[in-house]
Design a protein around this nucleic acid. Sequence first.
DNA 1: GATGAATGAGCGTTCATTCAT
DNA 2: TATGAATGAACGCTCATTCAT
Lengths: 209, 209, 209, 209
Amino acid sequence: MAKKNKRYETSSKILKAATQVFSEVGFAGARVDEIAQRAGVNKATIYYNTGDKKTLYARVLQKISGEMYAHPSENIEKVLTPVGQLKAYVRNIANVIDRNPALPNIILWEHASGGKNFPEEASIEIAKMIEMLINILKEGEKQDIFIKTSPILIQFMIMGSFMLYKTSNPIRKMHTAFPREVKKSESNLSGTIADEIEKYILKAVKKEN
Amino acid sequence: MAKKNKRYETSSKILKAATQVFSEVGFAGARVDEIAQRAGVNKATIYYNTGDKKTLYARVLQKISGEMYAHPSENIEKVLTPVGQLKAYVRNIANVIDRNPALPNIILWEHASGGKNFPEEASIEIAKMIEMLINILKEGEKQDIFIKTSPILIQFMIMGSFMLYKTSNPIRKMHTAFPREVKKSESNLSGTIADEIEKYILKAVKKEN
Amino acid sequence: MAKKNKRYETSSKILKAATQVFSEVGFAGARVDEIAQRAGVNKATIYYNTGDKKTLYARVLQKISGEMYAHPSENIEKVLTPVGQLKAYVRNIANVIDRNPALPNIILWEHASGGKNFPEEASIEIAKMIEMLINILKEGEKQDIFIKTSPILIQFMIMGSFMLYKTSNPIRKMHTAFPREVKKSESNLSGTIADEIEKYILKAVKKEN
Amino acid sequence: MAKKNKRYETSSKILKAATQVFSEVGFAGARVDEIAQRAGVNKATIYYNTGDKKTLYARVLQKISGEMYAHPSENIEKVLTPVGQLKAYVRNIANVIDRNPALPNIILWEHASGGKNFPEEASIEIAKMIEMLINILKEGEKQDIFIKTSPILIQFMIMGSFMLYKTSNPIRKMHTAFPREVKKSESNLSGTIADEIEKYILKAVKKEN
DNA sequence: GATGAATGAGCGTTCATTCAT
DNA sequence: TATGAATGAACGCTCATTCAT
């Protein structure tokens, strides 16, 4: 709306390009030159505008984790039952990932590298998110409809399956060895994939009667 | 003992060091100097003995995937019921990961990078493994004890949770934000962790009656 | 006076230093470090400004052959008789070599290496030059004042004597074995040396009557 | 004849291979590995048998110059007239070059590099050779059949034309720009080429009457 | 006499970063 | 605000040389 200043525009272009590049090749593999080129700015502009490579990466991480862990909370409180809340939780994650294609790669880069660059702010967001899951699962237990579970493992099952699915796309297509059922893939999670994972997670967690 | 081939011994030292370094920092982040130092050999020896950085990485990938996807089959055929087989399948994966600490990181690096360096041989091994899972799940369906599932997603749930668990260890410990339940961790999967995942996967897959 | 383009100035310094170094030790013997040092720039500047070692060498070759084969034509067309033209031809070559001390060495490096790096553009220039000589000799034949000759061999006699003379300078001085008459040398061709060669070439080519 | 010892055989193979390689790419461009491979021996054998790269190159130079400057004298003394002697001189050089294909390249490498590695022994041989030419030319002058000439320049005309001819072969064939008359070439000097050069040199030197 | 294995020194090249404008 | 030019510090790799056998 209001005409933003030029600096901000440049900053946005840089951040967008950096997100792309870092997600494709990771921190060590990323070239500042490449980021500058994709952003359509001079390499020195990155240093002038944002700072060094590490700072730039930190900004990317921060933005990513902000998006990751802020939105999911949106629709959950409106839902009343733990089952509905857990469904919403899974679905929100799928939505966020679909809206941020760079996210799974970056999270995996960070996991692989042992989180060396993971900013404290980002882990606060994650913590809030997990707390949300903990509450949902606890409430389910209290109502005697969920079994006792380890929230962190449930979290990893959800995130892990989504992220491996997303990032395995090129691998599955590249190699001829895989069975046919494995090679077909959908680019979005929010359709069939999220449906399935939601189903598995719920079954895994629900008490049989 | 028998005097071993000198070249082979050197090669082993190099491969071991390379596996470590690549798993810690990935291909782009790895320094040949560092690998040489950890192997206790001169940098040039790596080139004399094994070849360039890419070749070395390929060898690491090959060894890793060999170990990953060969062993799990071991105990499965002895088990008769699909439930037993699925349990063995999950447990075997946990065992392999425990025995090869570099494995989760390297797999994640590869996923994150879109499998640019993934050797065809490795994907053959993975394919065999997934085929195994497909058969188990099919048999379960046929016997009407498993629901219809997407094997690749089940696979990703198992692998994803194990690998994220393993690699999240330093992150979880590093950051203060996480709830207490999340911070405690066991270094091996084969104990409680595998038990839990096994339970969730089975519940996710089994038909309720 | 007018403020020159900075990049161009750097480029010139690099090209000059490169010409020197390549002429002294050839392509394989040249060290990029040495070129950078003589040019008074950082080694990386060479890559930023010009490109890799091969590209740099190509530029040197191109400039050398440009100078070699452009100027000789200058004064020849003004001269009317074949004898005068041939004299001018020889003299022009001597002048060019005198003005470009790196030239003989570089041509010899290229000859010795089988012209592996010789750029097509350079050979076009040489070809034009030889064509000039062919025309002079043909005209002389037609006027019945020159014998029938092989132009390429005449060319090699001229170039060969000039270039060996120039490059033998350090050798002749270094070694004590040579007869006195051989050791004295003039640094420029354009004086006595060119006079002599001109005389020999003309005698070799002219028809006796 | 007598069965030579093994060391000598190895030494010969090495020297032959080294001569080839040095003539093709010069001292700086030569790789000890390549020489070893062509000689069919282990790289370490070169050091054991002959010494380091410089020593090996010196041996090659020595052998080359020995061959170059010893043989030409053979037939000259039998010839009585200066004209006949000069013809023999030119022809002998052509023969030696034909018999030693590595010779022109190596001489050119040495000239180009300013004779940095030229051994004193070699220059003694050259000196003897030039002295021979000096005597022939002096005798011709005394008999009033040759004009007064600069022997070193005559020497360079002969050597220069032969060597440029030989080494220009690949260049002339490689590039399309050259006129047809220039592209055809004979691999041996001793035929037409030597005839022509001999004719030019004699005409250049002989007194007209 | 000969060699497979290993290495130190150095080379061409890249890359994150800074400087002058 | 932005950039073209320049650079220091590495990095992957090569190569002449040595060592143990």
